[in-house]
Design a protein around this nucleic acid. Structure first.
Lengths: 291, 291
DNA sequence: CGTGATCGATAAGCTGTGGCAATGGATCAG
DNA sequence: CTGATCCATTGCCACAGCTTATCGATCACG
């Protein structure tokens, strides 16, 4: 019952149990009969129990041998399966992938997930939603393997792959003076309270988002901070102020809010896929590589 | 993914995975570090996948390694348990025991079973009831390991251990002329139809059972054959005839039947425990040995 | 019974491989 | 730059596991 039991012993045991004949079992194992006898004896000594009852004419399993047989068989089968599975994981054919994403990227993400599931049916994907900062932090700490984020700044510990660009648009209350006129000049919104996410949530994203205003010479002051786009737009709908938002989050506006195209050069918001730069795992590459 | 993966590889893998440090892992395994490096490398080659990501400063599990780790751990644990269990079976501490018995031995059997279950709580006992012939045949063919039978003849492939002796008594209808007088002479029953099991069911048992009649000079002729004692006694109760039965099966007689002690030297019926003579399995000996 | 065939155990010698010690090369701290 | 750390590489050796040869027990058969 020691350490020194080896799989060899189990393989030999199975062969003898199958054949009930040391000669034939040895032949099947491509070894000579004495070697087999020795190894079986050794195994018995290690367990402290006879596995076979041998006479010079016959070989039979003992109770202990009969009890051990199915377990040994199962064990070897299991090991083979586990080794195979490890190989598949190593090749990125199976395993688990954790993906962090922002909720406004749900459409583009679900497309990618569908395609990925078709290519890697045995990969279990776990999704974690959050804001861009949270996703990047999770990615940095290894909680997720891939992040889908918006307007993240270039950083040297991550690779960022642009997935999609979309223009920014203004969202104003339906009863706002400019609500009818399109496109609207950013300067025309300068007097209204601005509703937007805190700059600390993503300085770069904030700056990209407010670029149309700054370029129009407006002094950007957030009147009401709010982290979630849908909540921001609800505030706009209730007349609390205006905002500048990526087009995709304005797809289904609530009653009381109006979307207006912005005049001037179209400012772009980018949805990016982020991975750790050091991360060369085949599963991650299989997802980001697209094919 | 070949044959030559050995448990050594798994043990070494676990050590390295635990320590994430080849030097310390080697120390724990009481081998030198290069040997460990070699074996891990060999395992990786056999599976076809890297299990660790090593730099000269750090060791980390790959996805494949992380996936394989719990399985390898489980496998080794399982094996240890299986070896232990095999040892217990070999020592007769666990396992399964098949016992054949005749229903009239149910009281003495259940006593023994209770005591045995206390001594060997991990032995699963399976019971098979039948007539003496069936039990002996099952024992001979290996379907059961121990048989509890009545008045079996000595045979050279079995060991028979007497468990209990009991006298034979006569059973007669309540309205029989001798019903009041005790003890009854066997000769006084000569005129009545005899109800008994077929002689072919056990010639020796039959002869033992009918000895009181034959010694009284009665010509034994079975009028009604019936294999089961309780049925035989029911027939007696309905007035169909008389019988000679072991005392224990007359314990609770139905309305209409009377038990009568037999005059003369008491004839004995023996309940025996039978095992195959070649069968020296510790579990069988543990049951028959009594302690 | 004697004889040959079968089959597992034992004996003795050979060999492949797992282990050792020493060394190399990369990385990091100070 | 220097020393420390840590995994990989190299070269060698001992022994575990394999081989062949032989033994001893059991069985079939004439």
């Amino acid at each position: 019952m020691d350490q020194r039991v080896e799989l060899r012993h189990l393989r030999y045991f199975l062969a003898v149990a199958d054949e009930l004949h040391f000669g034939r079992a040895a032949e099947r194992l491509h070894i000579a009969q004495p070697a087999l006898s020795q190894q079986i004896r050794q195994l018995e000594k290690l367990i402290g129990v006879e596995l076979f009852k041998r006479t010079s004419r016959s070989v039979r399993l003992t109770d202990a041998g009969a009890a051990f047989l199915p377990r040994a068989r199962d064990l070897l089968g299991r090991l083979a399966a586990d080794l195979h599975e490890a190989g598949r994981v190593g090749r990125g054919e199976a395993g688990r992938l954790d993906i962090g994403f922002i909720s406004s990227a749900v459409v583009i993400l679900s497309e990618r997930l569908r395609a990925f599931a078709r290519r890697r049916p045995d990969v279990h994907v776990k999704l974690h939603d959050g804001f861009t900062v949270d996703v990047l932090s999770s990615l940095e700490h290894g909680t997720v393997d891939v992040g889908i984020v918006r307007d993240a700044e270039e950083r040297d510990d991550m690779d960022l792959i642009p997935l999609e660009s979309e223009r920014f648009v203004a969202v104003v209350p339906a009863d706002h003076p400019v609500a009818g006129r399109e496109p609207v000049e950013a300067a025309d919104l300068a007097a209204d309270p601005l509703i937007l996410f805190p700059r600390s949530y993503g300085p770069h994203a904030f700056d990209v988002n407010t670029a149309p205003l700054r370029e129009a010479g407006v002094d950007v002051q957030v009147a009401q901070e709010c982290s979630n786009w849908h909540t921001i737009i609800m505030f706009v709908a209730t007349g609390l102020g205006v905002t500048i938002a990526p087009y995709s989050v304005t797809n289904r506006l609530p009653e009381g809010a109006r979307r207006l195209e912005l005049a001037g050069p179209p400012a772009q918001s980018r949805i990016l896929m982020a991975t750790r730069r050091s991360d060369d795992r085949p599963l991650v590459e299989a997802f980001t590589g697209g094919r």
